[in-house]
């Protein structure tokens, strides 16, 4: 973990209520896709934990949904603003544990971390089937970005307005036995039930985001884990629903 001053270079709405923010600064603490950063906002006591979409040593892209007044404030920040950010939090996905073919499954704002993951998996020579789940066509973002990576992409919409009608699990194929997933709890559970192995990213209300407060502890088959420190990514065999 590092505490860095990051400068906003871009902050734009890419789907209704969903924003993509690009920042520059020292991102050397980020070591794995699926990690998150924790952003301090003026006038707010707690930081806002947001997953890393993609990063380099000097740049960071995050995608967040406006869910309350804090993220609404974040969405109004213009380029040039500086943010106090804790970087490189959480464990992230372990690419070394992934087999040759991985289904990378994101639902809604669970999609962003899967972009950095898909990129890293492809760079490691793995084949990737990206399944991106949304409620409706109007909510879709990053489909083209995933396609540009050169992986198989299936988009699902609950209302059938685009791509495969239904849930992400409806797009899983015979080959998609090992999954890396991020999304709402019901989605994770459904993917868990349809997969054989994999890594799942969980969300919880956090206090500190770096392991000090014990606010986000969960049960696992391997004892108690802090989702901000030993998570947010758990291996399938560790998960206790």
């Amino acid at each position: 973990m590092k505490r860095e001053a990051l400068t906003v270079t871009q902050n734009r709405e890419i789907a209704p209520g969903v924003f993509e923010m690009a920042l520059t600064g020292d991102l050397s603490a980020v070591t794995a896709p699926g990690q998150f950063v924790n952003i301090a906002l003026p006038g707010r006591f707690l930081r806002r934990p947001i997953s890393v979409c993609q990063w380099t040593a000097e740049s960071l892209t995050i995608i967040y949904k406006v869910v309350g007044t804090g993220t609404a404030d974040l969405s109004r920040l213009p380029a040039g603003e500086t943010l106090d950010v804790l970087t490189g939090l959480g464990n992230g996905y372990d690419i070394a544990k992934c087999p040759d073919h991985v289904a990378v499954i994101g639902g809604g704002v669970g999609v962003p971390p899967m972009y950095g993951l898909a990129k890293a998996l492809l760079a490691a020579g793995k084949s990737v089937h990206a399944i991106l789940g949304f409620n409706a066509k109007s909510e879709i973002f990053y489909e083209d970005s995933f396609r540009a990576l050169g992986c198989d992409v299936t988009v699902t919409t609950v209302d059938g307005s685009y791509g495969t009608k239904g849930f992400v699990t409806d797009a899983m194929t015979e080959a998609d036995r090992y999954v890396c997933a991020c999304g709402p709890l019901p989605m994770l559970k459904a993917v868990y039930n349809k997969s054989e192995d994999g890594q799942f990213s969980f969300e919880e209300r956090m206090g500190c985001g770096f392991g000090a407060c014990m606010g986000c502890t969960c049960h696992t088959t391997d004892g108690h884990k802090r989702l901000c420190k030993e998570g947010p990514v758990l291996e399938r065999r560790e998960i206790v629903w």
Binding site: R44, F45, L46, G70, E204, R205, M206, G207, C213, M214, G215, C216, T217, C218, H219, H224
Partner: peptide
Amino acid sequence: FGNPTPRIAECREGLIN
């Protein structure tokens, strides 16, 4: 283990744990 989650709520100039 402690209490079930959510265990944290933000407040103005503070938090509830």
